[in-house]
Amino acid sequence: MSDHHIELTINGRRHVADVEGRMTLADMLRDDAGYTGVHLGCEHGVCGACTVIVDGRAVRSCLMLAAQADGAEVTTVEGLAEPDGTLHPVQQAMREEHALQCGFCTPGVVMTLAALTGGNEKPTEEALLGALSGHICRCTGYQGIRRAAKRLAAGTAGAAA
């Protein structure tokens, strides 16, 4: 089994680790770096709960190896809100639309929406809902998640914050 020395940035902070070749990015983020907001729902890339942002793109951290993240810039759900606690517009929209119940799938949903709405391009509602079809939520029936996505597409999210 190969061991790998990796250095990466997680939520703006430098992180150094020695990992086995088979260790997933998700397990490294949770167990080594302590970002337990990364949730593992299926560990086979279907449910989307473990989604994080790697170099600007939404990635399922259960399907990526930690060794592959060497030199990458990673953002987890812990890295979105302002240091003073002000929620990210995606988090604020999710909160106001009651888009979560148990909160287990939530970090993944938040990260996908944050990755897609974080750039200069304004994604359409269809594009956001299309991306959300890769997330499984067992609690809400997606009602609030869909409303939050609609607000984010329309650019009205966070206005109340």
Binding site: R30, D31, Y35, T36, G37, V38, H39, L40, T76, V77, E78, L80, A81, G85, L87, Q91, M94, R95, E96, H98, L100, G103, F104, T106, P107, V110
Partner: peptide
């Protein structure tokens, strides 16, 4: 009233405490 949930700021920012989060 449709008040905002007390649980959500914690769960939305990855500060939930599920069983696998405990070591």
């Amino acid at each position: 009233e449709r008040v905002l949930r007390k649980e959500d700021p914690r769960l939305l920012t990855g500060r939930g405490q599920f069983v696998d989060d405990i070591s």
